[in-house]
């Protein structure tokens, strides 16, 4: 139908000739069409038959929205920290070491009430967790994918996205807020290779850093030396990045269901970290598993326990100021004021 003609199949718009052999200027179909337009224009109604001045599309209806529960930016974590203590965890490790897998497995364990000693209390980024976990839902005609989670890619390449989860500890009914960043392995890689640390600055205020390492690589004679060296270099970079008190380090070794980390390898990593005056607690985990002896999620409860074990204690509010007998405080006072 051409512009302004009410007759279905009108050809004037394309061929400039009317198929009904009417004169386009006086054709009753066209004339009626334009009359309709004029009538509508008077009513302020929206029509789409191309009359001049009328809106082409109806304006979209604005629906109110709730703040989405996707990954949180640093500012949101800051805001949360104003009202309560949030345990910030830094998660570093090579690409495909299993960082996202740990997070997905943690989420699925709490959603089945299977995280030993802990239960779910709240999450400000529930849909983000759901999205990560759903990565594992897309199966290829029944074959589990080689990687259970989707490779992490950031929409914003300069800012980390945090997942928030609040867990309640059953033993004392205390709840802990965790801010867990889901970072691409490339960020760790760039940090090690070229010291690119602008987007990892939040590590300075982290309570704990998980150094995630693939257990299969650590048990492979050809690959392990490289992995151990990278961990050492990562430690050196952290030393340079973090001024003041170092967050506790936890070495998270994944794929516990397939390989048991060798004592010798762990000792070598410890030596490597010790070069930079650092030490790490070792937790072996299996976020996913086919081995019934090491069920999926094996070790994640230990990882969470280790993460909160020694939530950083503040300086004593009223430090003990009683003079000890041998202390010559008065002499020191005079010396200080000289």
């Amino acid at each position: 139908m051409s512009n302004g003609c009410g007759y279905e199949g009108c050809t004037v718009g394309e061929t400039k000739r009317c198929a009904l052999e009417n004169d386009p200027a006086t054709c009753p179909h066209r004339v009626t069409g334009s009359l309709v337009v004029e009538e509508n224009a008077g009513d302020d109604t929206i029509d789409s038959n191309g009359s001049v001045g009328s809106p082409v599309l109806a304006s979209p209806v604005e629906t109110p929205t709730f703040p989405p529960s996707t990954t949180l930016a640093l500012a949101a974590i800051d805001e949360m920290m104003v009202s309560r203590y949030v345990t910030v965890v830094g998660i570093l490790g090579d690409p495909e070491a299993g960082k996202t897998a740990c997070l997905a497995s943690l989420y699925l364990l709490v959603s089945h009430a299977k995280l030993e000693g802990w239960s779910f209390a709240d999450s400000r980024s529930l849909m983000a967790f759901e999205e990560i976990a759903r990565g594992a839902r897309r199966w290829n005609e029944g074959d589990p994918p080689a990687q259970m989670t989707v490779h992490t890619e950031m929409a914003d390449d300069r800012q980390p996205g945090f997942l928030h989860i609040k867990l309640r500890r059953r033993s004392d009914d205390r709840s802990f807020d965790f801010a867990l960043p889901d970072l691409p392995g490339e960020w760790s890689k760039d940090f090690i290779r070229t010291a690119r640390s602008d987007r990892l600055e939040f590590m300075r205020s982290a309570d704990v850093i998980w150094l995630v390492s693939d257990g299969r690589i650590l048990s492979n004679k050809e690959l392990r030396q490289g992995a151990i060296t990278r961990l050492g270099q990562l430690a050196a970079r952290l030393r340079a990045l973090i001024i003041g008190k170092m967050p506790r380090l936890i070495l998270v070794i994944t794929h516990r269901d397939i390989v048991v980390p060798a004592v010798d390898t762990i000792r070598r990593i410890e030596l490597e970290l010790a070069k930079h005056d650092l030490e790490a607690e070792v937790v072996a985990v299996a976020p996913f598993s086919d081995d019934p002896n090491f069920g999926a999620g094996f070790g994640l409860d230990l990882l969470i326990n280790a993460t909160v074990r020694e939530a950083r204690k503040g300086e004593p509010f009223w430090p003990d100021s009683n003079p000890s007998e041998e202390q010559r405080s008065f002499l020191s006072y005079r010396r200080d004021n000289d």
Partner: peptide, 9 residues
């Protein structure tokens, strides 16, 4: 919820 944590096979 997705249950491959317990029944992946």
């Amino acid at each position: 919820p997705l249950d491959w944590v317990t029944s992946r096979k």
